[in-house]
């Protein structure tokens, strides 16, 4: 951990919320992004973001610097996202409507190669939306495993640590998520 980060942790542990804000400023975009990937809409993503970071602030006095701060923070966010979905499911049938696209970064399409034609870009954008809708049909754990390992590039053992389960369990969530996605996306994949 960097000296500056350690200093900010010490200050935040003593109740300095400004230091806490500085501390998380390098990481909170990723927390919000993870939340968004799991719930598919900005309102719920913001709720998870708030819940996770407030919990982290409250729990920070117990943080003993024995693990990486980001891993600690991200683990809280992962758990909040999983529990948020669980709570939500108790009260309502999940909406599988298209995720709201206004909140995506304006440059998210820039990753599509500039050599592609506008038609190809449009098709890829549509496919991306369709896959995201299909991802929202997975169970929360399958979705989390898919987002962490497939979209965010975490290794299986890292995802297991973040999700607080065994490596074998994450592996089966991930593989099952792929099988389900294949079923949901079969018509598009064949074309």
């Amino acid at each position: 951990m960097k000296d500056r980060e350690i200093e900010l942790i010490h200050k935040a542990q003593k109740g300095d919320s400004f230091a806490f804000e500085q501390l998380i400023s390098s990481y909170d975009r990723q927390v919000l992004s993870l939340a968004y990937s799991i719930v598919g809409n900005s309102d719920d993503a913001q709720d998870i973001y708030q819940e996770a970071l407030i919990s982290a602030y409250k729990a920070l006095p117990k943080f003993r610097m024995q693990s990486d701060f980001f891993t600690w923070l991200y683990r809280i966010a992962v758990n909040k996202a999983i529990n948020f979905k669980r709570k939500k499911l108790q009260y309502q049938v999940e909406s599988i409507t298209k995720p709201d696209s206004d909140s995506y970064g304006s440059d998210h399409d820039l990753r599509i190669s500039s050599s592609e034609t506008p038609e190809e870009v449009t098709i890829q954008k549509e496919m991306k939306d369709i896959i995201e809708e299909a991802v929202l049909l997975l169970s929360t754990q399958e979705r989390m495993a898919f987002v962490l390992c497939h979209q965010q590039g975490y290794k299986l053992h890292e995802a297991a640590e973040l999700m607080d389960c065994t490596l074998g369990t994450v592996k089966s969530y991930l593989f099952r998520s792929r099988e389900k996605l294949k079923v949901h996306l079969k018509p598009y994949m064949e074309n």
Binding site: S25, D28, R29, S103, G105, S106, R111, V147, Q151
Partner: peptide
């Protein structure tokens, strides 16, 4: 599946979230 990538969050959404935090 890789056509669907990690969500890019807009600056305005992040700023709103930070203000609320």
């Amino acid at each position: 599946f890789s056509l669907s990538t990690e969500k890019e969050i807009s600056d305005s959404l992040l700023q709103d979230s930070r203000s609320e935090l």
